[in-house]
Simulated scan of single mutants.
Amino acid sequence: MHSSQQSCPFCAGSMITDPQFFVGRREELDFITSRLVNTQPTSINVVGERRIGKSSLLYHFFQTYEQRVQGAGKNPGNYVVVYLSLQAAQCRQETSFYQAVAQALINRPVVQGNPALATPLQAGTLDRNGFSTAIEEWQAQNVLPVLCLDKFEELLGKPDQFTDEFYDNLRSLMDRNALMLVIASYRNLDVYKRKYRFLSSFFNLGQVLPVAGITEIEATDLIRLPENKIPGATAALSSERQQLGLAWGGRHPLLLQLAGLWLWEAQKQNRPDEWARQKFELEAQRVPHSGVTMRRLSRPMRLLLWLPMKLGRMARFVGDKLDDTSNLIAGTVILIVAILVTLKIVPFEELLQRIKDALGG
């Protein structure tokens, strides 16, 4: 059963803020929760390509952390989690960053009702020392502030405003278990450390949480929205269109949302599936690494681009975490050398040396 009269449950292009329509990421949410409730909280770098769902993940954790902490057997009152997008205008300078963090913390009801937490954050203009002092007073109250910082590249791209000393101070608070960060970025922080020539140990941050596609079960749950999310609700799409949505979107959350959106529009307007497919592919081309643009290429050309990229990414996993351009170069070298070995032109020992040279370069 499905209903063409219900509102569209698919959200394509913006952060999901309604927890009723957030689907999946159970492993990622459990990962963040476990690092939060450890005896020594561990900060996390959430890494994933653009539009893969990092913002929605951080925001949903912010919305649901109290239930998750309680489910882990801990007292939610010992934690205050806030979400902050660093694209906001008030985060362009160091002091304004501290003010934005302080205001986000003060806005939480548990802080408003506790002067011992609110007062240290209201001491006029917060500078680096003032912010550290306030956080240390929270630690004396046995309360851990957890900052979910989205779009962290916005800070990293301003090394004249956010210096090594700024990052050193954050690292000091983290090392003393007075502060936990959950940072979302496109690449691992050590990539930015090299790019902007930072020296701070901050960039050896806790643990990395890679965010990619969702699981097959989660993808099925998403395309069946709002079923299982709203009591008594049925899937917005027919069974046939659910299967189309899964075929088009795969396990990429945004592509699934786009597929669901246009299939729902086609269902509502009594249009053919081909109309929905064209609309979907037009928008899906703007999704990074979605594969839609690559599908338009010939099969040999797709293989020529895809295989070196995959090999290069394997090299990054083993070695130096190269960027995509380097992935393509390293992967191409590996592929060519492998072909030479297969044709018995290059000995296997030389293959290993060539791969080592590619990764070292």
Rank of each mutant, 00 (worst) to 15 (best):
G312I: 07
A102F: 08
L282S: 12
W138P: 02
M1T: 07
L246P: 03
G360W: 10
L147E: 05
A123V: 12
A89G: 03
M15H: 00
F31G: 07
M15Y: 00
G53E: 09
L155E: 07
P19D: 11
F166K: 05
V47I: 14
R92W: 04
K193H: 13
Q63S: 12
E137T: 06
L189D: 09
A184G: 12
F202I: 12
T33E: 11
L304E: 15
K195H: 14
P145G: 07
T234W: 01
D18H: 07
E154A: 15
I183P: 05
Q63W: 02
L311K: 04
Y192T: 09
L179W: 12
I106W: 04
L303D: 14
G53T: 06
S298Y: 12
K268D: 01
E28T: 05
R68E: 09
S34I: 03
L297E: 12
N107A: 11
E216C: 00
Q161K: 13
T95W: 02
D324W: 12
A72L: 08
G157W: 04
A235I: 06
K151H: 15
A259T: 01
Y167K: 09
M180S: 05
G360K: 14
Q112I: 04
I329A: 05
S7C: 01
R171G: 04
V47Y: 11
K344T: 06
V111C: 09
K195R: 10
A212Y: 05
V101M: 11
E240R: 14
V333F: 05
V46N: 02
R224I: 01
N107D: 15
I336P: 00
I223L: 02
M180Q: 15
L170V: 14
V211Q: 05
F97Y: 15
L254P: 04
T119W: 00
N75L: 10
I329P: 00
G113V: 01
K356A: 10
L155M: 14
E227T: 01
R26I: 08
N129G: 06
D30G: 07
M294W: 10
T234K: 02
T215A: 06
V82N: 07
K195I: 12
L244A: 06
K310I: 09
Q267N: 03
L84F: 13
L189A: 09
L86W: 15
W306K: 14
F202N: 10
K356C: 00
R313S: 14
N142Y: 12
P300D: 13
E137F: 04
R302P: 12
V337W: 03
V337M: 06
